[in-house]
Nucleic acid binder design. Structure first.
Length: 187
DNA sequence: CCCACAAGTCGCT
DNA sequence: AGCGACTTGTGGG
């Protein structure tokens, strides 16, 4: 009963992202329907069209009467606009708050990714070096792969040192498409 | 705690 | 171009 042992009671942050998703809304684009998922803190995930994800039988049986909070509607509008710009290769001006969950290492990587301007690229080596871990090149690639909000967190701007593409969680076709939209020619 | 894997890179053939 | 060695964060046993 120690009052001193408050732990961090007020808000238990669930380790499980899925449990904290308040709403998953689609964004219809010429490329297909993206799915944006939000927590109380912001955009937590952006899924590519037909990403074979979200089998969501739960979604089908889910109570549809839960209203989407206004704050999320606003965020979603920002996401929609940002995504449309990004797909055209235009620099993304405004994005909603991001609720990016990951290890310290991953967060540093993602943070660095966000500083790569549209039309510019970086190698996995440089990315790793940029956060002070020049040897964690492969791990940097892993962190890119774990990026929960692709496109808006531009992991597609990271290429292999050998002037090759490297990988992409959404499929290399997407990586090429995104890069070419930004005027970057890819082999 | 130990082990295997991964969106890499470099050197050698 | 292909192959192996090496590196290091991450997740599973």
């Amino acid at each position: 009963m120690s009052a001193s042992h408050q732990h961090s009671s007020s808000r238990v942050r669930s380790q499980n992202l899925a449990d904290d998703i308040l709403a998953s809304l689609t964004i219809r684009t010429v490329e297909g329907d993206f799915i944006a998922s939000y927590t109380s803190k912001g955009l937590a995930r952006l899924g590519f069209p037909a990403s074979a994800e979200l089998p969501s039988p739960a979604s089908a049986s889910a109570p549809a009467e839960i209203p989407v909070p206004d704050s999320i509607r606003l965020w979603h509008e920002l996401t929609r606009r940002a995504l449309e710009d990004a797909l055209c290769g235009k620099p993304v001006s405004t994005v909603p708050p991001l609720d990016l969950r990951g290890t310290t290492f991953q967060r540093e990587i993602w943070s660095t990714l966000r500083r790569i301007p549209a039309g510019k690229t970086m190698t996995y080596s440089e990315l790793a070096a940029r956060i002070g871990r020049p040897n964690a090149v492969r791990a940097a690639g892993g962190a890119c792969g774990a990026n929960p909000v692709p496109v808006l967190v531009p992991c597609h701007r990271v290429l292999a040192a050998s002037r090759k593409l490297g990988g992409f969680s959404g499929g290399l076709d997407w990586k090429r498409k995104l890069l070419e939209a930004e005027g970057i020619s890819v082999p």
